[in-house]
């Protein structure tokens, strides 16, 4: 099962390497990882999606806790939370199919952010399921390039 961990860490150089090394060394699989600074500049937040059973998740959490620069770990999988991913798609778009693509973009409330002679770049945000759905819809036109940020998440309400 996939779990989403929200991890606050000291905003030091090398923290990402420590976390990544830990996952590699212990053989845990990172589904996605995104990191950025928070409202407190000395702290960064990592949103890590891990695939594994309860035992693996328990070990991941305990081992992460042992990293000196890890401050707090929350498993927000079962929490009421908002999660978002951002994706960019470069899609083949000859003039005759552009209208159709633009309709799909509208349906998913995505944006066209660049137009080339034969291609478009589409920006989409949403939860994982929505991004997967856009990807499926655009595949028929020919996806030339795709990049996804990985998930960022926040617990609803005052808790955090």
């Amino acid at each position: 099962m996939k779990h989403t961990l929200s991890v606050t860490v000291d905003n030091h150089p090398g923290v990402l390497a420590r976390v990544a090394t830990l996952f590699r060394r212990r053989g845990y699989n990172i589904e996605s990882l995104s990191v950025g600074r928070t409202e407190e500049p000395s702290i960064s937040r990592m949103t890590i999606v891990v695939d594994g059973d309860e035992n693996i998740l328990e070990q991941v959490t305990k081992q992460l806790h042992k990293l000196v620069e890890v401050c707090k770990i929350m498993d927000i999988t079962s929490e009421e939370s908002v999660d978002r991913e951002l994706a960019l798609f470069k899609v083949k778009a000859d003039p005759q199919v552009r209208a159709e693509i633009m309709q799909i973009v509208d349906i998913f409330r995505a944006h066209i952010v660049d137009i080339g002679r034969r291609s478009l770049i589409i920006e989409a945000t949403g939860d994982e399921g929505k991004i997967n759905a856009i990807e499926d819809s655009l595949r028929a036109f020919g996806i030339m390039e795709m990049v996804r940020t990985g998930k960022v998440a926040m617990v609803r309400g005052p808790k955090g």
Partner: peptide, 8 residues
């Protein structure tokens, strides 16, 4: 002393 050893 190391919680990660429990159940490893």
């Amino acid at each position: 002393v190391d919680a990660a050893e429990i159940g490893k």
